[in-house]
Nucleic acid binder design. Structure first.
Lengths: 338, 338
DNA sequence: ATGAAAGCGCTAACAC
DNA sequence: GTGTTAGCGCTTTCAT
C-alpha cells in the first residue's frame, strides 16, 4: 500500500504538500495540486484513515449501541428503519457508523470502552430507561451522545423523541370517539420511559372523558413472546366488558389479534385493536391495523444530525427535538353498537 | 485522557512494559504486571485502539456494506436478524462492525474506500449478483471478504448460503403434493442469483412431476411495492387456472395475499400461497404462512466466523458453507379438491 | 524481565 | 506556497 511519502516522491514534493492537497488546504498552488492528484491516482494512493484519526484525534465515526438480546424487539423493523435514517445523514456528513454489539447487561461497559478507546467521536442511544446508569456514565465521560427517546432530567441531555403522551392520548381518544370505554393497554417493561409515557397518555384520555381508570386493564410485558397471547386471553376472559385493546407496539398488537381470533372472537367486530409505531406490515395484515406513525426514519436523521453538530461543537446548550407522530386509521377498530 | 506514558510514570516502569502488560506478553513478571494494572485502573487508562491499529496494521473491524436504498427490502427483518448473528460472533472474537452505508450505485466505491483506507480488516457482502463488479474488485484488492449468497465462479470465493434450489424445489413439491399444478412464481430481480436459484428449484419440481413450465406464470419484481399487488391481480385475472402462488419472500407473499383478498378470493380455499425466508411475522398473520426457514441468524454467524478466520490466516483455500433451510408448513395452503 | 529507540502514516506548527 | 520537524499513542526490535 502506497503512503503519503510515495506520493511525495512521485510528485517531487514534500509529504506535507501532499497532506495539504488531501485536506484541501487553501494556500496551495493549482499546479502542484494537480500534479499531486495525478500522482495519487497513478500509484493508487488512499489516505490511511487510521493515521489521520490518530493525529487529528477524531475518528469521524459514531457508535450505535445495540444489545443483541434475544428479545423479539430486535426483530422489529424499527431498527432497520432508524438505521436507514442514521446511515443517510452519517454518510452525507462523512461519518461512519460503528455497531457496538453487546449482550444485555454489558451495554454500559461496551459503550464506555468504545468511547474511551477513542473508537468513536460520539454515541447514539436508542432507548431511554428510568434511572439509567448508561446515560449518567456517558455524561460523566463527557462524550457527545444523543438519545432517541425522552430521558429523565430532560434538560440535561440531547435527545430526539415523539410526543408519546400526546400521541397515545389521541389514539385512545379515537377509540373513545368510537364509543369504547373499556380499553385494555398492553405496554412494555415499566423501566422504559416510553412505556410510562404511553400509559400516561392513555390515562389522560380516560380522565378527559371522565372514564374511570381500571388498573386491571393494564399489562406490562417484558419481551414480546407467547406471554402476550396468554395475557390477552386471560384479560379477555376475566373482563368480558372489554371492547378494545391498545398495544404499544404493532408486533404486540399482531399477537393480541391472533389471541383474540383463537378465542373465537373477531377483530374489529368484537374487539377493536390499535397498535403503535406503524410497522410497514400493519397495512398488509387483515384487518389492517390502526396505529401511530412515529416517523422512525426521521427520528434517526434528526438524532444523527444533532449528534454530529455536538461533535463538531456547533451546539453547546442541551437541546431536544420532538418529531411529529400521526395516527393512521385503518380497519382494526369498529364503532360500539348500543 | 491518560496515555501509556502516564501509566508508565505512575507505575515507575517504561512505556514498553506497560505495552507488554496490555498485550499479555509472556515474559513479564507477575509483580510488575500487577503493579501496572493497578496504575491503569487508578488513573482510568484505556488503550487507544486507533494507535494500536496504526502500528499493528489491523483494525479488528469488519465492514458491512449496506446500501440504504429505498427498496422495502431493507425493512426486511432479514437484516436485523443477520446482524444479530454477525454481531454475536464479532463480539465474541473481539471485532467491531463498521456499517458502510451508501446509496445504490456507490457500493463498490464505498467498499473499496473502506478497505484501502484501512478502516476494516475485511468485508461482509450480503447479496450475490450476476456479473458482480463489487466481488471482482474486492478480489483484485486482495481484501478478505465473505459473501452471504452463492456467487458465480463459486470456487473462487468464500461464501455462505442456503441451498436455495433444493429448498425451492421442496417447497413447490409440497404444493404439488397437495394437488397443485398451476403455480405462479413471484420472484426478485433476475440480476440476483438467489432469484435465479429459486426459479430453478421451481422448474426442477415441475419437471420431476412432468408438469409443463409456463413462462406466463413467472413474475420478476424489482422493489417490493404496489407492483406486487397489481401483478398478482393481473396474473390471477389472466390465468383463472392458477391455484397457487409462490412468492420468494414472505413480504412479497403478504402483498400477494392482500391482493388475492381484494379480488374477493380466499386464502387458502381459492388460492394457496407460500413464501420464503420465514419472517417472524409469518406465524402471526391470518392465514399463517407456509414458508422456508433459512436460518438467517446462523447465516450471519457462519459468514462472520469464516471472515474472521480468513482475516487471521486460519483458512487459505476458498471455502463455502451451506446452511440448512427447512420448510415450515402452516395454514396458507389447501389441498386441491377434484 | 525490562528499557531505549525507532517507526506505523499522517498533520500541523514553524520556518523561509 | 512549500519544506522541515516534531509528535499523535502505541508496539517492537534490539539491547542489557
Amino acid at each position: 500500500m502506497p503512503t503519503i511519502k510515495d506520493v511525495a516522491k512521485d510528485a517531487g514534493v514534500s509529504p506535507s504538500t501532499v497532506s495539504r492537497v488531501i485536506n484541501d488546504h487553501p494556500r496551495i498552488s493549482n499546479a502542484t495540486k494537480k500534479k499531486v492528484k495525478k500522482s495519487m491516482k497513478k500509484i493508487g494512493y488512499h489516505p490511511n484513515i487510521i493515521a489521520q484519526s490518530l493525529v487529528k484525534q477524531k475518528t469521524n465515526t459514531i457508535g450505535l449501541v445495540m444489545p443483541y438480546s434475544a428479545e423479539e424487539a430486535f426483530a422489529n423493523p424499527f431498527y432497520s428503519e432508524i438505521l436507514r435514517g442514521i446511515g443517510a445523514v452519517a454518510q452525507e456528513k462523512g461519518y461512519s457508523i460503528l455497531l457496538i454489539t453487546c449482550d444485555g447487561q454489558e451495554e454500559v461497559e461496551a459503550s464506555l470502552r468504545a468511547v474511551k478507546s477513542k473508537l468513536v467521536d460520539g454515541i447514539l442511544i436508542l432507548r431511554a430507561k428510568k434511572d439509567d446508569i448508561l446515560l449518567k456514565k456517558l455524561r460523566e465521560a463527557e462524550v457527545p451522545f444523543v438519545i432517541v427517546g425522552r430521558p429523565e432530567d430532560a434538560d440535561k441531555y440531547y435527545w430526539v423523541n415523539n410526543d408519546n403522551i400526546k400521541a397515545s392520548k389521541n389514539l385512545v381518544q379515537h377509540l373513545i370517539d368510537l364509543g369504547h370505554k373499556d380499553i385494555a393497554l398492553i405496554t412494555g417493561g415499566s423501566e422504559y420511559i416510553v412505556s410510562q409515557d404511553r400509559l400516561d397518555g392513555y390515562k389522560l384520555a380516560l380522565k378527559e372523558n371522565k372514564i374511570k381508570y381500571n388498573p386491571e386493564y393494564i399489562i406490562h410485558i417484558h419481551g414480546n413472546e407467547e406471554i402476550i397471547s396468554k395475557n390477552t386471553k386471560k384479560l379477555l376472559k376475566k373482563n368480558p366488558d372489554l371492547t378494545a385493546i391498545f398495544a404499544v407496539d404493532d408486533l404486540m398488537a399482531y399477537r393480541s389479534i391472533l389471541a383474540i381470533k383463537e378465542l373465537g372472537l373477531k377483530v374489529p367486530e368484537d374487539i377493536s385493536v390499535v397498535g403503535f409505531n406503524n410497522n410497514p406490515l400493519s397495512q398488509l395484515i387483515t384487518p389492517s391495523l390502526t396505529t401511530v406513525d412515529i416517523n422512525t426514519y426521521q427520528l434517526g436523521e434528526e438524532a444523527t444530525s444533532i449528534l454530529i453538530n455536538v461533535i463538531e461543537n456547533k451546539i453547546s446548550e442541551y437541546y431536544h427535538k420532538v418529531v411529529e407522530a400521526n395516527i393512521i386509521i385503518r380497519n382494526s377498530c369498529d364503532k360500539i353498537k348500543f
